[in-house]
Amino acid sequence: MKLVNSYEFLEKLNNLIYSLLELRDSIRDEGGEVIPIREAVPLVRYGFISMFKGGVIMDVTNEEQAGIAEDAGAVGVMVLDKLPYDVRMAGGVARTADLNVILKVMESITIPVSAKCRIGHTEEARLLERIGVDLIDESEVLTPVDEKNHISKWDFKVPFVNGARDLPEALRRICEGASMIRTKGEPGTGNVAEAVRHMKFVSRDIATLRGYFISGDYEAVWYYSKENKVPYELALLTSKLGRLPVVNFAAGGIATPADAALMMWLGSDGVFVGSGIFKSQDPENRARAIVLATSFYDDPETVVEAQRMVSEKVAMMGIDLRTLKPEQLMQVRGG
């Protein structure tokens, strides 16, 4: 930085202060009271995520799909360059979506717009924050740039969601500043089996910790945190609360209304649907049906109604997990 740059900076700062003072005075003249506004503090980040509960966030690749998702009652969309299934088929390096596409989607719908960045790619995250994305998914669907470290998410104003396969992984992500967790599942397979496995792992660990708390065995909570490399405070908080300390969605392989309802029964707060909708032949109906089944998962009649809105004949084909080679698994990226 040159000295003259600091002059420019100071001039801007000066202008900024004067414009703020003028605004304050004009509000005072109108009889208003001036109060501080604190933008994007953690409480409004967690609070924002809390509004997603009981809803469906849908993967989209363009504004037409985003419009379909909004009309179907999605609580948000996730903009990708390729749907997870296509990422799998295409191979190569998967990166964050085209910023122009994300901006177009942001201009065309009223619901929150999320986008994915690569694990550890702080700069992609900065770009997404800069253009005003509402939520960033630091996702294993894209090719990780840092196998050892995730982004330090406390440094951002925008909330983050991270994938997890079990409770320790979830708590580590929360410790790094994630405002929301989702199961990893096995993305782009149309097979919900892995999401079920991950959700049950999380629930069982929570039940164990809860048991320690109820029986007053804090030493066991301490031992759990040491064994699993998670901060003691977060393990203790989870044991007190009896659930994950942040909102927890299901993701990875959800393709039908019944899949969504199943994940809700297992304790998800809501669901992400990736390839399941726009890789099927009936995206409009399927999107609407999954929204209905997620909200009314505990009402069998309504889930039947939702399931009848879709046909298995036009569902996405799906991939048998046993045919995948270990190196093709996405869930093992970033631990």
Partner: peptide, 29 residues
């Protein structure tokens, strides 16, 4: 809707509500 901007513009403040008094308020999108 979304009068104050997107999520990064969500904010906390305090304000006076007639009949209620002064409250902490979270404005989220």
């Amino acid at each position: 809707r979304n009068a104050f901007g997107r999520q990064v513009n969500s904010f906390m403040t305090e304000l006076e509500v007639e009949g209620v008094g002064r409250v902490r308020a979270a404005f989220i999108r």
